[in-house]
C-alpha cells in the first residue's frame, strides 16, 4: 500500500506501451481496416453499377425486340399487300387477255358469218332461180327478176 518508485516504473512502462502501440500497431491495423472499407465500398458500388447496366441492357434488348417484331409485322403486311397486288394485276391482265381473245374470236366469227352469208346469198339467188325455173318450168329471166331475188337474198 506504499506509494514508491513502482509508480514511476509503471508510468514509464505505460508510456512505452502506449508509444509502441501508437507507432507499430494502431496505424497498421487502421490502414488495413480503412483499405478494406474502401474495397467493400467500391465492390458495392460496382455491383450496383453492374445491376444498373444489366437493367439498361434488358431494357435495350426489349426495345430492340419490339422494334424487330413491329418491323417484321410491317414486312409481312407489305409482302401480303404486294402479293395481293400481284394477284390482282395478274387477274386484271388475264381478264384483259381473255377479253381480247374473246373480241378477236367474236370478230372472226362475225367475219365468217358474214362471209358465209355472202356465200349463201350468192348461192341463194342461184338456188332460187333454179328452184323457180323448176317450178315455173320456164327459165326465169334473171335480169327481170333480179330485183326480187336481191330482196329475197337480203331477207336471209
Amino acid at each position: 500500500m506504499n506509494i514508491n518508485l513502482t509508480l514511476i516504473g509503471q508510468s514509464i512502462t505505460f508510456l512505452f506501451f502506449v508509444l509502441f502501440c501508437m507507432k507499430a500497431v494502431w496505424p497498421a491495423l487502421l490502414s488495413v481496416m480503412q483499405a478494406r472499407e474502401q474495397k467493400i465500398a467500391k465492390g458495392l458500388e460496382n455491383a450496383e453499377k453492374a445491376d444498373k447496366d444489366l437493367e439498361l441492357a434488358k431494357q435495350e434488348a426489349g426495345k430492340k425486340l419490339t422494334e424487330a417484331k413491329s418491323q417484321a409485322a410491317t414486312l409481312v403486311e407489305q409482302a401480303n399487300k404486294r402479293a395481293s397486288q400481284i394477284v390482282d394485276e395478274a387477274k386484271a391482265q388475264a381478264q384483259m387477255e381473255a377479253e381480247r381473245i374473246k373480241t378477236a374470236a367474236q370478230a372472226e366469227v362475225d367475219r365468217q358469218v358474214s362471209q358465209a352469208r355472202e356465200e349463201l346469198r350468192g348461192q341463194v339467188s342461184a338456188l332460187a332461180i333454179a328452184g323457180a325455173e323448176k317450178i315455173l318450168g320456164a327459165s326465169v329471166d334473171a335480169n327481170v327478176h333480179n330485183a326480187m331475188l336481191d330482196k329475197l337474198a337480203a331477207e336471209l
Binding site: M1, N2, I3, N4, T6, L7, I8, G9, Q10, S11, T13, F14
Partner: peptide, 8 residues
C-alpha cells in the same frame, strides 16, 4: 497496487 493505477 495503487502504484500501478496511480502511475498510469
Amino acid at each position: 497496487d495503487p502504484n500501478a493505477t496511480l502511475g498510469m
